[in-house]
């Protein structure tokens, strides 16, 4: 009987040891690091002070940077939802083999290096002579070239592209769980196509949209490669700032404080929104 009780712990020992040593300890060390002191010449001093945290919370530079990070993440989330939800719905109504082919086309980029995909956007934006501007101007959408490189607009578009598969995937999974007869039932009761989407389909896939949104938001807020390439050295978000503190300025304690704050803020937002979603839908979808 005792052997039975110990079994699950024995089975998970390798994973527990690894995660204890390589996740929990380093994270704890990072939190500790954020309380250390640092000077241009003296380097890192292992003391416990609130200097970095004080700086992060009072300096308007950091406030603005965090605000920018979450603003971009929110816009990316909205953009992926506005484009991804209808696309997932359209995809779901396609017949084979088109359904499978386009699913592969849309989800496939998830597996292509994010550096290569962002490079593509850098080429498309490419200053005022970029293809996107030429296309938009020839269609008459804009009259003069829009700046995309080194701007938030550019970051939002590129990040929305990078993270779009996650949204489509989440909504797709929700659509798969729908009983196709339910749409027929609504039609038989006199609902038109628009009513079916608004009153029947959307409310049912809302949990999927929201969970997709949470994933996209978290990944957008912590994205690094895309903001680094599109934003360059000029436009910083939390992760690129932390990177600079670590590998350029070498002020590790300050970088650690930024990183830990990003982690805490994200956990708070994600946990709170997941709770909200769960509570809202517990009764309906169990």
């Amino acid at each position: 009987m005792r052997a039975m009780k110990a079994a699950p712990y024995l089975l998970s020992t390798p994973a527990l040891l690894l995660f204890g040593a390589i996740v929990v300890v380093p994270l704890a060390m990072t939190v500790a690091l954020s309380f250390h002191d640092w000077g241009q010449y003296k380097g890192i001093e292992p003391v416990s002070i609130l200097k970095n945290w004080h700086e992060v919370f009072t300096d308007s530079y950091f406030l603005e940077m965090f605000w920018r990070t979450f603003r971009i993440a929110l816009l990316v989330t909205l953009l992926t939802a506005v484009l991804g939800v209808p696309e997932a719905y359209i995809l779901n109504r396609m017949r084979s083999p088109w359904r499978g082919i386009f699913l592969l086309v849309i989800l496939g980029p998830l597996l292509i290096s994010v550096v290569a995909r962002t490079l593509g956007w850098a080429l498309l934006f490419g200053g005022s002579s970029g293809i996107v501007n030429k296309a938009l101007m020839s269609m008459g959408v804009i009259s003069s070239p829009l700046p995309f490189m080194f701007t938030e607009t550019g970051m939002v578009v590129a990040l929305a592209h990078v993270l779009m598969p996650y949204m489509v995937l989440a909504v797709w999974a929700a659509l798969q769980r729908l009983d196709p007869q339910i749409e027929n039932a609504a039609v038989a009761l006199g609902a038109g196509p628009f009513t079916v989407v608004r009153r029947i389909v959307l409310p049912q896939i809302m949990p999927g949209i929201l969970s997709g949104g949470v994933i996209v938001f978290a990944l957008a807020a912590s994205a690094f490669a895309t903001p680094a390439i599109i934003g360059g050295r000029r436009l910083k978000v939390a992760s690129t700032l932390a990177y600079d503190e670590f590998l350029n300025t070498l002020n590790w304690p300050l970088g650690a404080a930024v990183a830990v704050l990003l982690l805490l803020a994200l956990i708070a937002i994600v946990v709170a929104s997941s709770r909200l979603v769960e509570k809202r839908y517990a009764q309906v979808f169990g």
Binding site: Q181, I182, N184, A185, A188, V284, F285
Partner: peptide, 28 residues
């Protein structure tokens, strides 16, 4: 189909899971 005004009971019932019983019945 939407204008035929036929009542249909589906094999899977096809109830609207996000609506209460009353809302389901009221939909038509």
């Amino acid at each position: 189909p939407a204008k035929r005004g036929l009542g249909i009971v589906f094999q899977s019932y096809a109830l609207f899971p996000h609506m209460t019983v009353a809302e389901n019945v009221a939909f038509g």
